[in-house]
């Protein structure tokens, strides 16, 4: 689904109440950097188990993910919402 409304708005529009949003973009970047760092550290073993094509693709995807977060194109939030009490 594509929408330019933010997720908290979409949740509210879908009938959820008490929508709380916490920004986790910092942790998201840390995790993305860890995927990249450990993929490189374990590269020989990963290549042996996944094959070169998949290993190359994963490295490229992980690099792209880090770049996208660093450039502010991606963010990550924890959204917690409650269903509205039913009448």
């Amino acid at each position: 689904m594509a929408s330019n409304r933010d997720q908290a708005d979409l949740l509210a529009a879908a009938g959820f109440a008490e929508v709380e949003e916490a920004d986790f973009t910092g942790e998201f970047l840390e995790t993305a950097l860890r995927w990249l760092r450990f993929s490189r550290e374990l590269e020989p073993a990963l290549r042996a188990s996944l094959g070169d094509d998949v290993a190359d693709q994963q490295l490229a995807d992980r690099t792209e993910m880090v770049t996208a977060i660093e450039e502010g194109l991606l963010k990550r939030s924890l959204l917690v919402a409650a269903a509205r009490p039913r009448k």
Binding site: F28, T31, A32, R34, W35, F38, S39, L42, A45, L46, A48, S49, L50, Q58, R76
Partner: peptide
């Protein structure tokens, strides 16, 4: 899954379910 992919997942997100998310 393989030992390498499981090791990687444990190091990065701490799980061992064959996940590769965040």
């Amino acid at each position: 899954g393989s030992d390498a992919t499981r090791d990687l997942e444990r190091l990065v997100i701490g799980s061992d379910f064959g996940a590769n998310g965040y």
